[in-house]
Amino acid sequence: MTRPYAEVIGDPIAQSKSPAIHGFWLDRMGLDADYRACHVTPDGLADYIAERRSDPDWRGCNVTMPHKQAVIAYLDRLEIGAELVGAVNTITRRHNGALIGTNTDVGGFLEPLAAVLAQNHLFRMARVLGTGGAARAIVAALADHGFTIVLAGRDPAKAQSILDAIDPASEHHAVDIAHFSDPTDFAFDDRQGCFDLVVNASPLGMRGQPPLAFDWSHAPPGAIAYDIVTDPLETEFLRNAGAAGHQTIDGLAMLIGQAALAFEKFFGVAPPREHDGELRAMLSA
């Protein structure tokens, strides 16, 4: 007897927390369904999509590195958000068999910022570190909420191309990520009424990856530090931010938020968010 299932694909995939998150929700709700992890290499991506198209039990998948952009070529249509971002992290199948790409990273990233974004600000600025698929979603989310963005990457030309593709009419800036590694004596102006955000949207600082070199003298007083890395949960980036007096947001906030949006697409019901505290404790253990 078969059961409906969804999964997460990537290369590598063993580190993904998505099966634990979706499994937790399925268990709490008593749903007769599965959520799995599937290791898919770049060379195997086309075959994976072709095989899943013909599987009646498959409800879709989450997409992680390095497939968020490459997978677009194998889909039938993108939802507006994914089309703007140019990256897909969730695939679902419609009743007519069409495979639809969406990006729940945008909503997931914004969720823990909702209370601050509901306020009025004289100016909003974000320093975003990274130029991958998650960074594209974050740039789109922030541009839509009126931020001036400084996008930093190892290749400033790539950073500029992302800004040009997503929000060409605004005054954003692309810089080399090394710009933020050394201390600065820059004197920040009065930030009263302003909202400043520093986001690590790269894998730097993740277990097994090179460290992220960011000196917190580059962040104005009151800036919020947000790291999308989930392993380790308390990264050096966040530890240093906290030591410098900044409020911090860890990677589980975005991960759980984007997973909740995907869960509803896969299984047709919203997950039980009242158990978020228990879920976070399980994922942090």
Rank of each mutant, 00 (worst) to 15 (best):
E83C: 09
G146Y: 10
P12F: 08
L129K: 08
E83G: 09
W25Q: 05
A134D: 00
A169N: 11
H67K: 08
H179T: 15
I149S: 03
F180I: 08
L163K: 09
V229Q: 02
A70P: 03
G108F: 00
G193T: 11
N103D: 07
R136W: 06
N103C: 08
P203I: 11
A118G: 13
G277C: 07
Y74T: 02
I21H: 06
F266V: 05
Q119T: 09
T248V: 14
G205W: 05
I256F: 01
A98L: 12
P203T: 10
E278C: 00
P183G: 05
R191M: 14
H121I: 00
A14N: 12
P272F: 04
F186K: 12
E7F: 03
G10Y: 00
P168F: 07
Q192G: 14
E111R: 15
I249P: 02
S16I: 12
A137N: 03
A115Q: 12
I9L: 10
L283A: 06
E236N: 07
A219N: 00
I228Y: 03
F266N: 03
A135R: 08
A270K: 13
E234Q: 15
L255F: 10
L113R: 09
A262Y: 00
L78I: 10
V269F: 02
P112H: 09
T230P: 00
L204S: 11
D144Y: 00
T2A: 14
F186G: 03
N62H: 06
A178E: 12
G23W: 08
S170G: 06
D57A: 15
F214D: 04
L142C: 10
D250Y: 05
L212W: 05
Q209H: 13
L233N: 10
A118Q: 11
Q192W: 03
G133M: 05
L117N: 07
V85C: 05
F266C: 02
P168L: 10
